[in-house]
Design a binder for these strands. Structure first.
Length: 352
DNA sequence: GATCCGTGGCT
DNA sequence: TAGCCAAGGAT
C-alpha cells in the first residue's frame, strides 16, 4: 500500500513543502496543514488566466480582477465591456468571454458555488480537461489527474518518452495518473507544476536540484533538455491590413467593437480593413484619409500582421458608416495591437 | 487530429 | 533576429 509519504510522490511533496512558490492565488502547504481551504473562485480565476500565459503576466490582472470583483457573484453581475476592458492585454480573449459566461452559470445555476467534481467543472464554459482537473485537485483536494505542459515535460523526461507531442499526450497522461497520490492531491498537482516551472524547465533543466533526479530516465541518458520532442510547426504567413484612425474636431475618436467570434473577438479597437495578402481599402466613413507612412508589426499565434495606419480629421456632426465616436480612449482598455496603432496614430494627428 | 486564438520574455 | 515558449479550450 503506497501513500503520499513514500515513493516518488512522497519525494516530490517533501520538496514542495520546502520549495513551493508563494503565489497570490495559492494556499501554501503550511496553510493547508493549518486547515485553510482554498477559495474556489480564486483558484478558478487564476487557472483561466494562466492558460498559455506566464505567472509574471498574470499577477497584475489577478490582483485587478479580485479587487474589482471579489466573488463569483460580483463577477457575474459585471458588464461585458468592463470585463473585456479589464482583460485587455492578456490575450486569448475567448477566455474572458467564457469567464463571464461561466461566472453567470455558477451564480445562477449553482447558487454561487463551483461544482466540486471534475465532471461538474468540465461542463462549464472555458473549462477543459486541464482546468477541470486542476480546480478539482487544488480547490477541492480531489485526486484528479492534472496534465498541463509542465506535467507533460516532467513525465516525458522522468520516463524517457521520446514520442513527439501531441501524439504522446495519451501516454503521458497515463504516466501522470500512475503518480497521482490519494493523499494531498492538490499539493501534488501544484508540486509537479512548480517542478516544471523552476527545475525541470524547457531549457537548461537544473537536474542537480531535482527531487526526481535518481529515477529520471532522460537525465541518465543525457537527453533531458531534448524532451519532450515536438512535431515541427508550420511557418507563419504574413498578412497585410489597414487601420483607420479618425479624430473628430471635438477630440472624439472613431472606434469599433469587434464581433464576438474570431480574432480579438468582443474587443474594442480601430476600424480596419480585412487582413489578408491583398487587403481591400474599406474605410469606416467618407473622409480625407491620409497615409501616415507608419506601419504596425504584430505577431499573432499563426500569422504575422503588418498594419498600415491611415488617419483623418473629421468635423463635428460626422456620421460613420460603421463604429461609433467615443469621447476618450484608454489605451489600457485595448488589446495590444490596437495600443500600438494608437501610439503611432496619435502622433500623426496631434491635438489642436 | 488540425486549426484557430495573444502576448511578452528569453535565447 | 526569429523562433520558442508559458498552468489550454473550442470547433
Amino acid at each position: 500500500m503506497r501513500d503520499a509519504s513514500d515513493g516518488p510522490s512522497g519525494d516530490l511533496l517533501a520538496w514542495y513543502d520546502v520549495h513551493a512558490r508563494v503565489l497570490p492565488w495559492r494556499t501554501g502547504p503550511e496553510e493547508r496543514r493549518a486547515g485553510v481551504r482554498p477559495d474556489p473562485y480564486r483558484v478558478w480565476l487564476s487557472e483561466i488566466m494562466l492558460q498559455q500565459t506566464t505567472v509574471a503576466a498574470v499577477r497584475a490582472y489577478f490582483r485587478a480582477f479580485t479587487e474589482r470583483w471579489p466573488t463569483v457573484q460580483a463577477l457575474a453581475e459585471a458588464e461585458d465591456d468592463a470585463v473585456m476592458a479589464e482583460w485587455a492585454g492578456l490575450g486569448y480573449y475567448a477566455r474572458a468571454r467564457n469567464l463571464l459566461k461561466c461566472a453567470r452559470v455558477v451564480a445562477r445555476e449553482h447558487g454561487g458555488d463551483f461544482p466540486d467534481t471534475v465532471e461538474g467543472l468540465r461542463a462549464l464554459p472555458g473549462i477543459g480537461p486541464y482546468t477541470a482537473a486542476a480546480v478539482a485537485a487544488i480547490a477541492f483536494d480531489r485526486p484528479a489527474v492534472v496534465v498541463d505542459g509542465n506535467v507533460e515535460r516532467v513525465m516525458a523526461r522522468l520516463h524517457g518518452v521520446e514520442t513527439p507531442l501531441p501524439a504522446a499526450k495519451k501516454e503521458l497522461t497515463a504516466l501522470a495518473a500512475a503518480l497521482t497520490p490519494q493523499e494531498r492531491p492538490g499539493d501534488h498537482a501544484q508540486a509537479v507544476m512548480d517542478l516544471g516551472a523552476t527545475i525541470c524547465t524547457p531549457r537548461n533543466p537544473a537536474c542537480g536540484l531535482c527531487p526526481w533526479r535518481a529515477p529520471c530516465v532522460a537525465r541518465a541518458a543525457g537527453i533531458a533538455a531534448e524532451l519532450p520532442r515536438k512535431s515541427p510547426k508550420k511557418p507563419k504567413p504574413v498578412r497585410l491590413g489597414i487601420a483607420y484612425v479618425a479624430r473628430r474636431a471635438d477630440g472624439a475618436w472613431l472606434m469599433e467593437r469587434r464581433p464576438d467570434r474570431g480574432l480579438l473577438g468582443g474587443m474594442t479597437g480601430w476600424p480596419t480593413s480585412d487582413w489578408s495578402e491583398a487587403p481591400s481599402d474599406d474605410p469606416p466613413m467618407d473622409a480625407d484619409w491620409r497615409d501616415t507612412g507608419e506601419e504596425v508589426r504584430h505577431t499573432f499565434t499563426h500569422f504575422h500582421l503588418r498594419l498600415r495606419i491611415l488617419v483623418a480629421e473629421v468635423p463635428e456632426g460626422s456620421v460613420p458608416d460603421r463604429g461609433a465616436f467615443v469621447a476618450s480612449v484608454r489605451p489600457s482598455d485595448l488589446p495590444t495591437l490596437m495600443r500600438k496603432v494608437f501610439d503611432l496614430a496619435r502622433s500623426a494627428v496631434p491635438p489642436r
